[in-house]
Design a protein around this nucleic acid. Structure first.
Length: 471
DNA sequence: CTATGGCACGGATT
DNA sequence: AATCCGTGCCATAG
């Protein structure tokens, strides 16, 4: 018989493979496509667009969540719920494989850094994270394609905050950065010109009101609409042409474009969002898991009914469809169920880490977690791979980081070195750590240093510990 | 001689 | 079965 196997959850053993005739693999990444495909192929499957609570199936209004339901379902502890992913994955973030590090980074790091430096003066420190997130979201032309609302959500910021930061960014050195498109970029650049000559006024009107005509080079039309002469229009356009660039980022990196070096601490739309309880900050954390599809998948009840009505004539094919559809939804349900449990345990165990930073990550293996929620180890492995999670403080990290055995120690080492008067040697660091009950070999300290990009003691002497501090 | 980085091995994890 | 990680040993740079 035909079997459907959700690889991202089910243990996949060779034995399993052998006894499974046909295997439909659902990887995390293209799950959405797979669902769509299945939806197209299988008439028994039905997608309900309307938002429903995944637990009680009660229809929900836009943005509403079934809180009581979530709470009831999980006795106590963190509140975990699924919500539809409002934004479909953009093509570029879908192609990321391996580590999320490969994530589409468009804007080169030097551009990002340069802008951040300029921003440092005006920018409220608390918006720093937001700014770097926005910068990392720019496409290769320097435009911001993601909607501000999405950004606000992903970074725990208010919409006004996001707009304010975008406005700041668009007015520093490569002017027009982080705007929505060429037109907005040009307008932002025009704002840079302090003196408001009649020429710039016309130019602005052209951009704001008759951009389409500009594209068609319809100078007469523009002149008519703006009630000026064609020669004025020509002058203004010449001005735009000479002084402004529709693609702000190009002006910055010119021709010598570097392969992008993305900030490993910034990712795109997270798969999971952890936030503090707005009512009670010390209470349970809230976890929001974004599902691949928006809507609710089920076996079409009409289909089911049709079959039971004329059971005898029901064709073999129909039954197959039914069976397959049922299996399909079951897999997906199981999948989200596992994901919920997984996050629940994770959030309880690593609360300190989530709230107070890297130092408090307690080493935990996927195997341990697997035992806790009684699933196969490989299930966990698959489930946490290729996913990113947004922390309450706005940082977005790969879910796999929860299983980094040495993160807390590395963090401690970083601190020791930064706050140290005069260059510690690796051996001395070992001693310090030893007194804190952290037993690692000298060689290991060296490795960690390397990972964090910290220079050896000799070269470090005074200056450059800031390189690592910036992250 | 000391502090580091390279290679490689064994055990744990996935 | 494949991979990752901490370490020990040894060569080398200072």
């Amino acid at each position: 018989m035909l079997q459907i196997q959700d690889q991202s959850l089910r243990p996949l053993t060779t034995a399993h493979l052998a006894q499974t005739m046909s295997l439909l693999v659902l990887s995390n990444l293209d799950l959405q496509e797979k669902v769509m495909q299945e939806l197209a192929d299988n008439p028994a499957l039905e997608l309900i667009e309307e938002r429903v609570c995944p637990i009680c199936h009660r229809p929900l209004k836009k943005g509403e969540r079934c809180l009581e339901c979530s709470r009831k379902n999980q006795d106590e502890g963190p509140i975990v719920f699924l919500s539809p992913r409002d934004s479909m994955r953009t093509p570029r973030s879908t192609q990321l494989e391996d580590d999320l590090i490969d994530l589409e980074p468009a804007a080169p790091e030097n551009l990002t850094l340069s802008v951040l430096e300029q921003l440092a003066i005006d920018l409220d420190p608390s918006d720093h994270q937001l700014a770097s997130y926005i910068l990392s979201s720019l496409d290769e032309n320097g435009f911001l394609q993601d909607h501000p609302i999405l950004i606000a959500r992903a970074t725990h910021s208010s919409l006004t905050q996001v707009h304010a930061v975008i406005d700041l960014i668009s007015h520093v050195d490569p002017p027009g950065l982080a705007t929505a498109g060429p037109r907005e970029a040009l307008i932002a650049q025009l704002d840079q010109f302090p003196q408001k000559s009649p020429l710039t006024k016309i130019a602005k009107s052209i951009l704001e009101e008759t951009f389409a005509e500009l594209g068609r080079r319809d100078f007469e039309g523009i002149a008519m609409r703006l009630d000026t002469s064609v020669s004025q229009v020509r002058k203004a356009i010449a001005f735009i042409h000479d002084n402004l660039t529709p693609y702000p980022a190009k002006a910055f990196w010119g021709s010598g474009r570097q392969p992008a070096a993305p900030d490993p601490n910034v990712y795109h739309t997270p798969d999971i969002l952890i936030s503090c309880n707005p009512i009670d900050p010390d209470g349970p954390l809230m976890v929001e898991i974004f599902s691949a599809i928006s809507g609710w998948l089920r076996v079409n009840p009409l289909f089911r009914k049709a079959i039971s009505n004329n059971r005898k004539e029901a064709s073999e094919e129909w039954l197959k469809h039914m069976e397959r559809a049922a299996l399909f939804v079951k897999c997906l349900q199981q999948r989200s169920n596992t994901m919920r449990q997984l996050m629940r345990v994770l959030v309880i165990e690593q609360r300190k880490f989530i709230l107070h930073g890297d130092r408090f990550l307690k080493p935990m293996t996927r195997a341990y977690l697997a035992k806790q929620i009684k699933v196969h180890e490989s299930t966990i492995s698959r489930a946490v791979a290729h996913k990113s999670v947004a922390l309450p403080n706005g940082r977005i990290i790969p879910l796999n980081r929860f299983f980094d055995r040495s993160l807390s120690v590395r963090d401690r080492i970083k601190e020791i070195i930064i706050s140290e008067p005069k260059a510690y040697t690796d051996d001395q660091i070992v001693d310090i750590l030893h007194k804190e009950n952290i037993r690692i070999a000298r060689r290991t300290v060296a490795k960690y240093r390397a990972i964090e990009g910290i220079l050896p003691a000799r070269l470090r002497h005074k200056k450059s510990a800031q390189v690592a501090a910036r992250v």
